[in-house]
Every structure is written in structure tokens, then in C-alpha cells.
């Protein structure tokens, strides 16, 4: 048997109830899922619960994963983000999510996370985000990791809505230009 089975073969085995395959995926991605839930919830206990819920969803939804739509890691992290944001709302810490993102589209955007070159790419994005001006980083943080709409961010920060829009646009354009330039 392959000692390093790829994501697709593992998730297919999980879909057939293979707990060892599930644990292999857990070992491979628990740190990434937990990093995301912890970042969103900022509470170790809640983050562990959200991480657990995410992997239980992976277990129960494995048969719904469609390889042709994209990588497993983005599918899993999309579930993790939604699980954590749902938990955030349940705790009454944020208003209802007005998230129009389409995970199907989203999780086709990043290649297989088990490849080290992708690790380097994600790490580079982390540093690019941190190089953004503070006010731009703040709107990305509130929008994507706290599930807030532009109007909610405007209210939260006391900035005019137009300012929020301008800063969000500038931030995303900067990330797009810098992070995607190597692929062009």
C-alpha cells in the first residue's frame, strides 16, 4: 500500500467508512483547520470544538466531495471557516453572515495542499497580507475571518462605507497583483 496516499484516495476511503484514512487526513490537515478556527474564534476551547465539528463534517460529507471541482484542503478549510463563523454567530459575537461566497468555486482555486510548493505559496501570501497597510489588513480580517459585510465593518470601525470599500478594494488588488504575479 502507498505509504503516502494522496488526498483523493484518502477521501474516497473515508467515504466508505475507513477510519484509518480519516485519521490520516486528520494528521495531515488538523493543524491548518485548527489555525483557521482559532484565528476566527480567538478562543482555544471554541476553536477545538469547531475543529472537531469540521472533521466530523468531513466524515459525514466525504461522499459529497467532488475531485473535479478542486482540492480537498480548500474544501475542508471552507467548511472550517463556515463552521467557525456559525459558532461565532451562535455565541452572539457577530451579526448574521451575509456571505455570498461560493465554496464550489472557491475550493477549485487552490491546488493540492499536500504539495510542499503550495505550502510555500501560502506562506508567501501570509507575509504579503502582513505587509499590507494596517487599515487594509483590518478590513480583510473583519470581512473574511469575522464574516462581516462592508456595512457592518463601516459600523464596527466608524469609517464611512466608501472608505471601507476603497480600502478593501485596494487590499485585494494588492494581494492579487503581488501573490498571483508569479503565475503569470
Amino acid at each position: 500500500m502507498d505509504s503516502h496516499p494522496d488526498d483523493l484516495s484518502l477521501i474516497q476511503r473515508v467515504a466508505h467508512g475507513d477510519q484509518q484514512a480519516f485519521l490520516a487526513l486528520y494528521d495531515r490537515y488538523a493543524s491548518r483547520v485548527h489555525a483557521l478556527t482559532l484565528h476566527i474564534l480567538n478562543d482555544p476551547m471554541l476553536a477545538e470544538e469547531a475543529t472537531q465539528d469540521t472533521f466530523l463534517k468531513l466524515w459525514s460529507r466525504a461522499r459529497l466531495f467532488l475531485a473535479e471541482r478542486g482540492s480537498l484542503i480548500v474544501w475542508l478549510l471552507t467548511i472550517a471557516r463556515r463552521t467557525a463563523l456559525d459558532r461565532l454567530r451562535m455565541e452572539g459575537r457577530r451579526p448574521l453572515l451575509s456571505d455570498s461566497n461560493d465554496p464550489d468555486t472557491l475550493w477549485s482555486m487552490i491546488p493540492d495542499g499536500s504539495q510542499s510548493s503550495d505550502e510555500a505559496r501560502w506562506q508567501s501570501l501570509y507575509f504579503i497580507v502582513h505587509d499590507l497597510p494596517e487599515e487594509q489588513r483590518q478590513v480583510i480580517e473583519l470581512a473574511y475571518y469575522q464574516g462581516m459585510s462592508q456595512s457592518e465593518i463601516s459600523e464596527e470601525l466608524g469609517w464611512p462605507l466608501g472608505t471601507v470599500k476603497t480600502r478593501m478594494r485596494a487590499a485585494m488588488e494588492s494581494l492579487r497583483r503581488t501573490w498571483l504575479k508569479d503565475e503569470r
Binding site: 491548518r32 480548500v74 472557491l106 501570501l125 473574511y144 485585494m172 492579487r176
Partner: peptide, 9 residues
Amino acid sequence: VSAGLLAAL
């Protein structure tokens, strides 16, 4: 980019 942000932590 937004998909990348999921994994960039």
C-alpha cells in the same frame, strides 16, 4: 486570493 487566505495562516 480568497481561497489562498484560508490556508495562509
